[in-house]
Design a protein around this nucleic acid. Structure first.
Lengths: 191, 191
DNA sequence: ATGATTTAATATCGATCACTATGAAAACCG
DNA sequence: CGGTTTTCATAGTGATCGATATTAAATCAT
């Protein structure tokens, strides 16, 4: 996973992979079928990990804290020196999409599911009166998904953790604040 | 350029390139030196084009209109059926970065310059009293740069133009509104 | 019109790719 | 302890990669 994460799908050669795994090519093929199979396994592993992080954030008291927590976690994760910078899923999307139809499909499904979890948490915030009832949850989820992808790219360019965290703070300004009166539920708010 | 845009650096073979250009390999090598040289030429061409678009937006009356115009232009451009979806620069960054040091450097320079132009326009908005004086222009430029990259990725996943435009509108909610009193200049605003 | 020079395509280079057949070593079982 | 099975690395497969030597066509000057 780390090799693919760093080099991308095409650029990661069998030699790179087997050396990193400490096994020989036949073992790799016995276990994963082919290079594409190994890549799919790596993608699934990463997404499982990412999902665990994401659901951890979902349990925050408010949708706002949930999203801000997710972005903050990502800012730290994308600059963690213990693994390649940025998001493997973003990397995978751009390096393997045109090569493998199967990978393309899996990536789109996983990303759609992640975005749906985000959207769901926002929707809940709307239901609970935390956000204005006319909030476009889909567009908001898309936006923060896009910010996440953008953060990944900047991390890969070498952006500092501090810069990413500053970006998170700025991005949260787009958060539609609740109707003014505290605890309001079925309030109508003007756009 | 279109071939690289669609397939990425590694995945674009000499055969793909020569067929698309309608020339033979020796001609390509006489003109561009090697594959990397051709890629660099493609990147420069794209950035020249992108810069022209960007400076067009910079001339808007307000910084806000400038940024919103840029994002809107990008949303349309990234989903234009006349060329591959998304941003070639983003594609290049993720597919050629680990392969070629030279390409990596050029891409970082060009992207830094683009972000600096964006930051400069925002800074001007601050000077002119359009934005609060304590606005973090760098973080704001980073944010909208990230949104652009994220839009590119979503466009590549197949997001509709409408979805992207909705995202732009949502992203503009992060714009720090001017101090309330019209035309205020040296006003101190509380964060 | 003809020989000199340039232009570009065919055919091919060594290297490397993803992938596998073969053979040795180790583990298991009677 | 010996025979069988499983495990895994070495070595090599055809295919394709990026890059070029060779050769044919075309242009231009004389």
């Amino acid at each position: 996973m780390t090799v693919f994460w760093q080099k991308g799908y095409e650029a990661a050669s069998l030699q790179d992979l087997t050396e990193a795994m400490g096994i020989s090519p036949p073992s790799l093929y016995a276990a994963f079928g082919d290079k594409e199979g190994l890549f799919v396994a790596a993608v699934k592993r990463y997404h499982a990990q990412a999902k665990a992080m994401g659901t951890g954030c979902q349990e925050a008291a408010t949708a706002r804290d949930s999203v801000e927590g997710l972005l903050t976690l990502a800012a730290n994760f994308f600059t963690d020196p213990q693994h390649p910078r940025g998001c493997f899923s973003v990397m995978a999307m751009t390096t393997a999409a045109s090569t493998s139809e199967r990978v393309q499909q899996i990536l789109c499904e996983e990303r759609a599911a992640a975005k749906e979890r985000l959207r769901g948490r926002i929707q809940r915030g709307i239901r609970e009166g935390e956000l204005p009832p006319d909030t476009d949850a889909t567009a908001l989820a898309n936006l923060y998904g896009a910010v996440l992808a953008g953060m990944s790219l900047q991390a890969r360019e070498g952006a500092s953790r501090k810069a990413l965290l500053a970006m998170v703070e700025t991005a949260m300004r787009a958060w539609p604040e609740a109707p003014k009166r505290a605890g309001a539920r079925r309030e109508r708010a003007r756009a």
